[in-house]
Structure formats: structure tokens, C-alpha cells
Nucleic acid binder design. Structure first.
Lengths: 254, 254
DNA sequence: TCTCCAATTGTTCAAAATTAACATCTTAAT
DNA sequence: ATTAAGATGTTAATTTTGAACAATTGGAGA
């Protein structure tokens, strides 16, 4: 492995973990001296890939995420690894040149970060997702207009729904605030619900991204049922009764 | 000065400079020991106000800005101090409870960061400005929909213009890609031009934020002339012929 | 007002991390 | 094969840090 490869490995390692210490990296690369690792980190900092801290480094996106999620939204972070598992499964369904919708939420941010640098036609209701996709890929990015919500940092409202009514979507990636067998997929915001509903109706293929912690949670507004969706991607810890019911509705579970 | 005040001073000092070293802070607070300053920085890091680095700290927003501007937009940074001068003059015109439009651009980001925490009705075409205002204030924030541009990270297009046509704006803050006496205020993107034009037409009061480096630059699409605007805020280094012409058009220069 | 407790700050010093400088090893071009 | 440039390792000096303890401050309650 040459130094370029190693630096990329280190960069993506830090990106996925959020931060790392020199000691940690030394264990990961036992044959590399601490001096070289320091030089690697300093190089990556000049490239704006990481922020150097005493004894290690932090991922730039980690800092950004902390602002948006921990400090701003004040919602507890589901561990980043779980979201990455889901995002990695989902990214395989993204095909260059297609029209795709990306919902709001931190899982969607993970997905945006690992999208291959191709040209897609991306529609989204989340400003942070839009910025990330602009940054990661060469896509044409459209943002639905409307009022911004402090719950999920997404825009919604009549304007957004109208906007999406005229758009054709190949694949829609939808996130899940809550799910129960009796009430299906639900969220807490009526505007958001209407937008999601409109997308689910219009998209050719609907892929739902849901981590297992959402099962059994009821939110006020139902925007879809299992029968409305095509694929459900999770962290692989779903309860059996959910899986049975999904299969009954021809939902592919990944 | 108690420790709470001092920590806030340190925080805003780092916020305005982007970063600072312990040695620098020690000069600023000669009677405070380095240990205490370290403790202050560690405290501020826990509050997510700064990121601790070896020998000092960086502002979180400095890191974010570097991503968006230096790395992503790759446009040279006009020095942050100049933008702050303009933003500080502009913020005095923002009155709680009013309907205001904020254009895209890094000067507008500075303005967003220093807005008092009041409730405004904010309309903007820039996702990053929208997020910042959500974070800084208790406002209702509306984002115009449309296609996102890699030039200025703003959305524009037919949807955005339609959206704004139905909105009443008290005060519009507009940024300037280029200005010349013969062609007025101009920008490089036709969608952006149309949106700006619509705003300038509809707003009760139009305040233009322009640093002196923009004078003498012609961009393809003119969206306003001196006669269309009410107030122009700059860094105070405008050429005399510009000032003369502005006064002829009853523009207040600050 | 005085006393006492807790929080804040300062000091000292050992440990950890960093840098600089130089030595060694690779690699690729000639 | 030779050489030069780049990458890596080693060492020592320097800087930064954190821990531990001492000193100081600022109130709350007697």
C-alpha cells in the first residue's frame, strides 16, 4: 500500500468513525510510525478532509453533523455505524441518469455522502441533503420550496407538494419517524406527511430506509402502509412479526 | 468580569477571527492564566461552540465556511472582517416580526449569524442561509424551491420566481456579483437574475450589500439599477464617482 | 457581619504530543 | 547502475497538556 492509498484509507476511516487518535491509527497500521501518521493527518488537514486535533483528528462532516443534529435538532444520535449499514445497502439502488427523490434525515445524509460521483437528477426536501449531494456528486439538484421545520430540517408545505406533483420520480428513498403494524409508516408533521404521501404515490419504486428502533412507534400522521412500498432497508435487527407482515405485502427486506 | 462573560467573549472572539491560540488569548487576557484559558476552551468545546486544536481552538462556523466556500465553491474568500463590517451595518435594519428576504452569498451568511434571536418571517433562496437563520433565530423560515446552482449555492428557477410572486416582503437584502455604472447590478445566472429582479420589484425596501471589490465588474444579466434600490451597504471603500451617482439616485450609502 | 462551603483560578510538574533535524529507505527516471 | 526526489523512521528538544494540589473568591446562611 502506497502513501496515497493509506491516506485515503485514513481519511475514510475518520470519516466513518467521526474522529480518531494517532494511537488508534497506529494500531490500525502497526508497521507505520507515528511520525508518518502525523504527516498523513497534516496532509489531510490541508486538503480540508479532516480537522487536526491534539493527538488525532476529527472528520469535517462529523463536526457539521454535530451542529445540525446534536446541537440544533437536539435529537439523540443513533450510532453512525448503524446508519452507514443502511446507507451502504441503499446506495446500490442509485443508478446514474435517473430521477431520484431523497427524503430528509440523518440516514439520508449518510447516503448522500457515499453516493458515487455521477450525474443524477436529485429531488429533495432537505437543504442539508441537497448541499451534500451537490458536494458529493455532479448531479442536478432540485430542492422543494416551502417552510422549514425545526423537527427534521426539511422544507414542506403546499408549495412543496405542488412542486413534486409535476415531477416524475424513478426511485424515492423515504425515511421513517415511526412505524407500527396497525398504523403503518407515520410522522409527526402534517406538511411532511402530505409531501411524503405525494412522493410515495408518484414514485415508480419506493425504498424505505428504517432502523429497527422505529418499529412500534406511532406518530400522528400515517403517510404509507407496507403495501405501498417496494423495498425496505434496515440495520438487520427487525422483529420477526414485522418481517412476516412485510413479506405478506411483497416488500423486499434488506 | 466573571468566567461566564469571559467564556462568551472568548467564544465570540474565536467566532469572529475563525481561530485563536492560547498564546493569543493570553495576550488578550493578561491577568488570566493559561490553565484557565485551556479550561475555558475545553468548556466551549463541550458546548460545541468551538473545536479544540493543539495550542488553541477553531470556530465551528469557520470550519463549515471553509467547506462551503473554499473547498466547494472554490471562490477566494474576501476577508471575513470586511463581510462582518457590512453585516453589522445591515443587521440594524432587521426588525422583529417583519417579512424579510435574504439573498444568497457569504455576506448573507455573516448577516444570518449575527441576527438577534427574535422571530422574523424570513424568505431566502439559499439553503445554507436558511439553516443558519433557523439556528440563530426563532424565525419562521421559508425557502424558495428550484434548481440549485453551483455558483452560489442558491436555488432558482421558475418555481422560485412563482413562489416569491405571492409573498409580501418588507425588506429585501440583496447581494451583488457585479456592478458597473453603465450596466447596474448584474449577475451571471439567468435564473438567479429573474429571482432577484422579482424580489427587487416586490419588496417595500431594497437594501443592497456590496463590498467595494464588486465595482467595475460586469456580469451578463442586469437585475437592478441604482434607481431601483433604497440603501447600499458597503465596506466603506467605494470610489467617489460611484458615490456621486448613487446620491443622484437617492440611494443612501452606509 | 462573619463563617463556611463550593466554585473558580493559579501553580507546579510529569506525561504526552509535536516539531525539527537528520538518517535511511524506495522508487522511478535516465 | 546511478541518481535524485520523495517517503519514512529515529532521535532529541520543545511545546502543550492534564492532574493534583494550593490559593482565592463569592455567596448563602447563621
Amino acid at each position: 500500500m502506497n502513501n496515497k492509498e493509506r491516506r485515503e484509507h485514513i481519511s475514510s476511516y475518520i470519516e466513518s468513525k467521526g474522529e480518531a487518535s494517532i494511537a488508534e491509527l497506529a494500531k490500525l497500521y502497526p508497521e507505520i510510525s507515528a511520525m508518518t501518521l502525523r504527516r498523513d493527518l497534516n496532509y489531510l488537514e490541508e486538503e480540508h478532509k479532516i480537522i487536526r486535533t491534539r493527538g488525532g483528528a476529527k472528520a469535517v462532516s462529523f463536526i457539521t453533523d454535530n451542529i445540525n443534529e446534536e446541537k440544533f435538532l437536539k435529537q439523540k444520535l443513533v450510532h453512525i455505524e448503524e446508519k452507514n449499514i443502511i446507507a451502504k445497502k441503499a446506495v446500490k439502488f442509485i443508478v446514474p441518469g435517473r430521477s431520484i427523490f431523497l427524503d430528509a434525515g440523518s440516514t439520508m445524509m449518510c447516503l448522500a455522502k457515499i453516493m458515487p460521483d455521477e450525474r443524477y437528477y436529485v429531488f429533495t426536501s432537505a437543504p442539508n441533503v441537497a448541499m451534500e449531494v451537490m458536494y458529493t456528486t455532479s448531479s442536478v439538484v432540485h430542492l422543494t420550496g416551502g417552510e422549514m421545520s425545526r423537527d427534521n430540517l426539511a422544507v414542506a408545505g403546499a408549495g412543496a407538494v405542488d412542486f413534486m406533483k409535476n415531477i416524475n420520480i424513478d426511485i424515492a428513498f423515504i425515511t421513517v419517524p415511526g412505524f407500527s403494524l396497525s398504523n403503518g409508516f407515520s410522522c409527526g408533521n402534517v406538511n411532511d406527511c402530505q409531501l411524503k404521501k405525494a412522493i410515495v404515490e408518484r414514485a415508480e419504486k419506493v425504498i424505505v430506509l428504517m432502523d429497527s428502533s422505529k418499529v412500534g412507534i406511532n406518530m400522528p400522521y400515517t403517510y404509507a402502509r407496507l403495501s405501498d412500498i417496494d423495498i425496505l432497508i434496515s440495520d438487520g435487527k427487525l422483529p420477526q412479526d414485522f418481517i412476516d407482515e412485510a413479506e405478506k405485502n411483497n416488500v423486499t427486506i434488506l
